[in-house]
Design a protein around this nucleic acid. Structure first.
Length: 441
RNA sequence: CGGGGCUUGGCGCAGUCUGGUAGCGCACCUGGUUUGGGACCAGGGGGUCGCAGGUUCGAGUCCUGCAGCCCCGACCA
């Protein structure tokens, strides 16, 4: 850590209003560069990458294929879909040296549709679900809340292509399940709420909301939906009943909310009105883009038909803030194991002390070999300062080695979430640290 | 885009009303004493006071314009 870059702050910068923003600044995860635009410092980047990894894993299980599209797009394809004008001022428009119109992509329906139509011509190639994790830019009227509503943000966006609506529904269901699983693995309880489908209509649009008082979305739901088991990653067979187990309950965003229906369908003691953070959004948009942009495949009958599309977004950078909103205390962040930038914070209370140094290095080596990410605090500083820093950055385990215990080869292990401490000999400490402490909660 | 607020060293702030040669805490550097929950003493470095004009013998302070940032609302991963 003496060689690391982790600029923590004792005092809270005045611009940060919500707890996740304050903690991200104080813990040295991000620094603001302009309104709604952030640099990700090493610690923040590690959390971001952990979230990406979970998303990738669950996308792969659900059959989605990763690719990467550019941040800059040509205006031409957006003129084709009709959204170049429609998108308005939220789209950042750029002109290159030749006077050609470009834009910093706020989303990628047009680009993926272009790629698809140029390369897929038969129903035999369907279904396809392609995604990427890329920075987006939306020139928000009012960015706020740190990375929760930035103008530049990292999003996983995926697009499915199917030959008909029935098949598109299956693609949608797969993402529905993959999203539930992804958020749960990040230590979050995300609930799917019926969302506005816009001009397309239908019931196939859901937002995934995690509850938080500082959230910008208001939701109305049956409280049982929060405690449903998360489905297995089994995507064969009929997914309908699994989806139904969620959609049978009333759960709607404020623009879809119907007070009478809510009162009728949900017993009073189960009615939950709460604020939340939208961390994912999936929807089926039918043939909207494929028709506008002529993305057709030949069916079994040899006739061309526009493909049925869906799109699926996860706010990756927003999740970093969202997870902190959901998991912190007055001392700092409490990272869930799966997304923690490091698993273990190793504190050497007395660098330079032979016994402490040797024990720390031994522990560091063994834990690293066991595949754990360890942040080693070997700074020459007071114990209190080290404890405070470690609590602030919120790694799941803290391993403290000082002259007191070093003689007997003892390590003090602290669980950041519960505050529980155990004094253990090296081998026992290694065994404990190698396990996720989340189950203790 | 409407309403409100802010801008003074890396961070948090005072000073602006009433113009007179820029200050406090934290952080940083040096030395010493300390050392298991953000130590103490002494010394030290660092600021075109957001930018541009103007008023004045003199502007952080007064006037005009502009910019950046934050908060509340309508829009969004």
């Amino acid at each position: 850590m003496s060689n690391y870059f982790l600029p923590t702050l004792k005092e809270t910068p005045s611009e940060a209003q919500i707890v996740s923003h304050r903690l991200m600044l104080r813990a040295g995860m991000v620094r603001q560069s302009a309104a709604g635009i952030y640099s990700w410092l090493p610690l923040g980047l590690r959390a971001l990458r952990k979230i990406e990894a979970i998303v990738r894993d669950e996308q792969a299980k659900a059959g989605a294929i990763e690719m990467l599209m550019p941040t800059l797009q040509s205006a031409d394809i957006w003129r084709e879909s009709g959204r170049y004008e429609d998108y308005g001022k939220e789209m950042l428009r750029i002109t290159d040296r030749h006077g050609r119109d470009l834009l910093y992509g706020p989303t990628n329906e047009e680009l993926i549709t272009q790629i698809f139509r140029d390369n897929v011509v038969s129903y035999k190639d369907l279904p396809k679900n392609l995604y990427h994790i890329q920075w987006k830019f939306r020139d928000e009227i009012r960015p706020r809340f740190g990375v929760m509503r930035g103008r530049e943000f990292l999003m996983k966006d995926g697009y499915s292509f199917d030959v008909d609506e029935a098949s598109a529904r299956v693609s949608y269901y797969k993402m529905f399940i993959a999203y539930l699983r992804s958020f749960r693995r990040m230590g979050l309880k995300a609930m799917p709420v019926a969302a506005d489908t816009g001009p397309i209509g239908g019931e196939l649009s859901h937002e995934f909301i995690i509850l938080a008082d500082t959230g910008e979305s208001e939701v109305f739901c049956h409280s049982d939906i929060l405690n449903l088991p998360v489905p297995e990653a089994d995507y064969d067979g009929d997914l309908g009943p699994t989806i139904e187990s969620f959609t049978q309950y009333y759960a709607r965003s404020d623009e879809m909310h119907d007070a009478d229906m809510f009162a009728q369908q949900v017993p009073a003691e189960k009615q939950l009105t709460a604020r939340g953070i939208e961390v994912g959004h999936i929807f089926y948009f039918g043939q909207k883009y494929s028709t506008a942009m002529n993305a057709q495949v030949a069916g079994p009958d040899g006739k061309d038909t526009p493909v049925h599309g869906g799109s699926y977004g996860i706010g990756v950078s927003r999740l970093v803030g969202g997870i902190i909103e959901a998991s912190h205390d007055e001392d700092g962040i409490i990272w869930p194991w799966a997304v923690a930038p490091f698993h273990v914070g190793l504190i050497n209370l007395k660098p330079g002390h032979e016994g402490c140094d040797a024990l720390c290095e031994s522990l560091f080596e063994t834990l690293s070999q066991n595949g754990l990410d360890v942040l080693y605090d070997d700074r020459d500083d007071r114990a209190g300062a080290k404890f405070s820093t470690m609590d602030l950055i919120g790694l799941p385990w803290q391993a403290v080695i000082g002259p007191r215990g070093a003689e007997g080869g003892e390590v003090e292990i602290k669980n950041r979430a519960t505050g529980e401490k155990h004094v253990l000999v090296l081998d026992a400490a290694i065994a404990l640290l190698s396990s996720s402490p989340d189950s203790a909660k």
